[in-house]
Design a protein around this nucleic acid. Structure first.
Length: 529
DNA sequence: GAAAGAATAT
DNA sequence: GATATTCTTT
């Protein structure tokens, strides 16, 4: 075997010793995938199974760290976009491997072809991995020589048993050769006793090793409306400028368990949406005004150039704001400007902030007095930080931040918030209705509606994730049921405390993430973009 | 080296 | 398409 005997520090001597004592020979597995992440998972799980005999090539440093860091020696894990290299390696060192695990969804090669070459032509035990578990795909794999198939994400339970394929094949070969002798070589394969022992030990250390080693999947965070609202609140509070970076947003949001990565990811999506919306708006304006985008002067690159009669979009010129979010976020400033206009209503109605607090009629948004459209357009009092759309009112701008020096220059009211309209429109359902509502009754954007209340109760901070007891196979959705009981707490990687409610169907039963998002922007709730 | 942002994977 | 993860840049 051509192993790289690298002298890595071993953070887990126990594991190494176990591997040596319990599985002196181990399984020598060649894992082929064009995705390093998948390989890392597989390697991690194999280590958990105490199959030893790993090495890496093709410069897969991360995989190498995982394998060698655990004291495992001489293995081949190849993460390559050139599975042909793996084939070549296998041809040269066919005897060096007991088993091959290969993804069938390769980028530059038909994985089934690879499977066939390895499993049938080369007669090496091979197991297919696939994200696709439909019968057709499985059968195709079997026809191409797969002894088994593992559906992604690969689970340790499956890997625990892969040795049986090697044993079976050896038995078959022995039977063919006529020796008829059943090998129970304890050095090559774990005996039942050993396996029982191993299983026992496995269970003992399960929780611990799960955390240490596998932890391949964090539970997926679902950006509920409330969480998204907090996110937007944070953006507003930070002014949407260069201060609005993931770390700061995270701090402002102050949601336990939420990570910077979570925020960064959401921020990326958020900005992309705004960008997309901006382009759409631009295109609409171009087509309506017959502006030739190819003409430098005809291109609407700055909202300050927008004609005041277009879509009710007046000049909201605000150089400071434009600069705040950098080149990519011209739209964000206009978005914030829009939100500021909305908040003007709360400035005009001093008690509205209290009114938007949860109450019996609307636990989330409270009751709103009717607000004439004249209010919407008559008081251009831009507030960088002052706009509120719902009950969460950070102390920092709870009252009277009307310092003119913080006001964007030249902000003129417009009748329809461009960002809101277009995003909602882009996101489909309820767009027409919402755009009309927001055009004629700004506060309609805030609710209230009875459906909103219902929606709130089932659409709150939640997580879902797949896992089993070791963190892979179950679905978790946790939630906090009401903003008034929010307390800002949630815990990632923990099962829901509301499983009873969920079993009764009273939970976010969106059939897809899309539903979550569309709900976030739908007419049932306040548009928060 | 940390963080942000972009790109990519799941 | 939503979110997580990784890569690249700052």
């Amino acid at each position: 075997m051509s192993g790289n005997d690298q002298d890595h520090a071993n953070p887990n001597p126990d594991l190494e010793n176990n591997a040596k004592t319990e599985f002196p020979e181990g399984l020598r597995v060649l894992a082929v995938d064009d995705n390093v992440v998948c390989l890392k998972l597989i390697v991690t799980l194999l280590i958990k199974c105490r199959y030893k005999g790993w090495n890496t090539n093709n410069g897969v440093n991360e995989v190498e760290k995982v394998a060698c860091g655990c004291g495992l020696q001489m293995a081949f894990v190849t993460a390559t976009t050139k599975p042909t290299e793996a084939l070549e390696m296998l041809r040269k060192n066919k005897e060096s491997y007991d088993l091959v695990i290969t993804d069938v969804e390769m980028l530059d090669m038909d994985g089934f072809q690879l499977l066939q070459i390895i499993g049938i032509e080369m007669d090496v035990p091979v197991i297919m991995i696939s994200a696709n578990d439909n019968m057709e795909s499985v059968m195709k794999g079997v026809r191409h020589g797969a002894l088994d198939y593992l559906v992604k994400p690969v689970r340790i339970e499956e890997l625990k048993n892969i040795w049986q394929h090697v044993v079976r094949k050896k038995l078959l070969e022995q039977a063919k050769s006529g020796t008829g002798k059943v090998t129970t070589d304890q050095n090559s394969m774990p005996s039942k006793k050993q396996r029982d022992k191993e299983k026992e030990k496995e269970e003992e250390t399960k929780a611990q090793s799960d955390e240490e080693l596998s932890a391949p999947k964090k539970h997926r965070l679902v950006w509920s409306k409330e969480l998204h609202n907090k996110f937007v609140d944070a953006l507003e509070q930070l002014g949407g400028g260069s201060k609005a970076v993931p770390k700061k947003i995270l701090e402002v949001m102050n949601v336990p368990g939420l990570s910077r990565e979570n925020v960064a990811s959401h921020l990326q999506k958020f900005r992309n949406l705004l960008k997309k919306d901006s382009k759409k708006t631009e295109m609409n304006l171009e087509s309506e005004n017959n502006i030739d985008p190819s003409q430098p002067n005809g291109h609407i690159s700055d909202l300050t150039t927008l004609p005041s009669n277009n879509l009710g979009l007046n000049n909201i010129g605000n150089p400071g704001m434009e600069a705040l979010f950098g080149s990519q976020n011209q739209t964000f400033s206009s978005y914030l400007a829009n939100r500021r206009l909305v908040h003007q209503n709360s400035l005009l109605l001093p008690h509205v902030a209290d009114q938007v607090r949860p109450n019996m009629q609307n636990p989330v948004f409270g009751n709103f007095p009717p607000n004439p459209i004249s209010t919407w357009n008559s008081f251009p009092r831009p507030e960088l930080n002052g706009m509120r759309l719902h009950s969460y009112v950070p102390p920092s701008f709870s009252a009277g931040q009307t310092d003119p020096s913080t006001m964007p220059v030249g902000l003129v009211p417009y009748s329809r918030p461009p960002g809101t309209f277009n995003l909602v429109q882009m996101l489909g359902d309820g767009s027409t209705q919402l755009s009309q509502i927001s055009q004629h009754c700004p506060l309609a954007m805030l609710g209230p509606s009875s459906s909103q209340g219902q929606n709130e109760r089932r659409n709150l901070v939640s997580f879902n994730g797949r896992g089993e007891t070791s963190g892979f196979a179950f679905e978790i959705r946790g939630q906090i049921t009401d903003e008034s009981t929010w307390n800002g707490q949630f815990v990632q990687n923990q099962p829901s405390e509301n499983t009873e409610r969920e079993r009764n169907g009273n939970y976010n039963n969106c059939s897809s993430p899309d539903d979550d998002l569309s709900a976030m922007f739908s007419s049932n709730g306040p548009p928060r973009l």
